[in-house]
Design a protein around this nucleic acid. Structure first.
Lengths: 226, 226
DNA sequence: TGCATCCAGATTGTCGACAAACTATGCCGG
DNA sequence: CCGGCATAGTTTGTCGACAATCTGGATGCA
């Protein structure tokens, strides 16, 4: 019997993961024209699997490809980043509502514990920005999966979050925002724990709206290029 | 100068389109295990481009792939179809709101003309189901692009609609629904024409909600297998 | 009879090489 | 001096073949 857990990673999967993280972490800057054999030598694989991975990345919108002309990392303008948050607002609002209806008590308890861990991290102020960013991602990740909506989770985790994270390292978290964000998170979890889907949706939408406004402020201040 | 409009279709693109339409039209039934060289002989191409296309389809959620075990068309359960409509509700609501804010007067006029064309088609009752289905798709398509939200349109047109259309041919449109749907469309367009984004969003959400309830009714009646 | 094991066949993953298309450099004409 | 064009070089798209892995049936044993 084939071990169902072994998942047998193929070279294409490996290439896909490597490229995706490379793009998200910024090792491959937006707008870069990257050659296929450059990537082959960098990741120790041949062009076959690589091209398959490139196809997947293109389909997810992280790469743009012009036939015979090469592939370059997609460059998301600041205005498009704002549009991304508008999508997040409605989709994560839905996720929060469904999570309130469907999450198990155990999952909710874990979610609370996660927030406690985030709080100590923020209070200790060590690597504030990084940990806050990862903690934020963790929080939204749990709610997306908790919605029990397969396609919704797939779209959020597989598409939107990667594009948002591409720009996360550029965004300066304004002082005091981590604490405020944590408070918003706590209120959302409370609503979920009370199984109040309507409230959870409202709070989540407002939470992401606040994040969007924060970004728009940075754009006006010229911190982020349009 | 290379003609920007010529787009130079590559074999992989061709394979992608062929497979996508084959899946949507039902030529490849959900759950089918399909072999790579079967597909190669069917579409007159080799495994290289085919595998690239398969990677894209998999990334879009139309196929599932297990290493060394082959690829099969994704089978969306009826409950998952309902979840899809929940996503559509919030995303198309957003699209309608942004369309109300951003569509040009010309686009709105075209949209109205489209609805008029649909009405005559429905009244003449020729190919009612088919034309209604295509007309409905056309309507939503225009609003998605009219939102000027690149990623939103991409997710709707490139992901959700294909999965919904996979099941469209199974859904029996209940008598009188085309007329009612057309009326709902008209009201949405009116709101857009008046630049009332909030109302457009509300009406669109209600419109898709009605479609979802129609599907749920069919599920209860056993028309659609769960 | 039922179950586990093994083997054969077919299928998938991977690789290297050939042909077509684009980019850039240099040249020519105005 | 500038713009357009031809050519060389590189990169991409495509193809066929080899090796690793999974599926299904037959076999042996309890």
């Amino acid at each position: 019997m084939p071990d169902i857990t072994s998942q047998t990673y193929t070279r294409a999967d490996e290439a896909f993961d490597c490229l995706q993280t490379a793009i998200v972490k910024g090792d491959l800057a937006p707008g870069d024209k990257i050659g296929e054999l450059d990537l082959c030598s960098r990741f120790e694989l041949t062009r076959g699997p690589l091209r398959e991975a490139l196809g997947r990345l293109e389909s997810r919108g992280l790469l743009v490809r012009r036939p015979h002309a090469g592939v370059k990392v997609v460059s998301v303008s600041a205005s498009e980043l704002v549009e991304l948050y508008r999508i997040r607002e409605v989709m994560e609002g839905l996720a929060a509502r469904q999570a309130a209806e469907r999450m198990t008590d155990q999952e909710i308890a874990d979610l609370k514990a996660t927030l406690d861990a985030h709080e100590t991290m923020i209070d200790e102020a060590r690597g504030q920005a990084y940990y806050q960013a990862e903690g934020d991602y963790d929080f939204h990740h749990r709610i997306a999966t908790g919605s029990r909506n397969t396609k919704l989770a797939q779209m959020l985790l597989g598409d939107l979050y990667y594009m948002v994270r591409m720009y996360r390292y550029r965004l300066s978290t304004s002082a005091g925002r981590p604490h405020r964000a944590l408070g918003e998170h706590r209120r959302i979890v409370e609503a979920i724990a009370q199984r109040d889907g309507e409230l959870a949706e409202f709070l989540m939408k407002r939470h992401i709206n606040a994040a969007r406004e924060n970004i728009e402020k940075q754009i006006e201040e010229g911190v982020l290029t349009v």
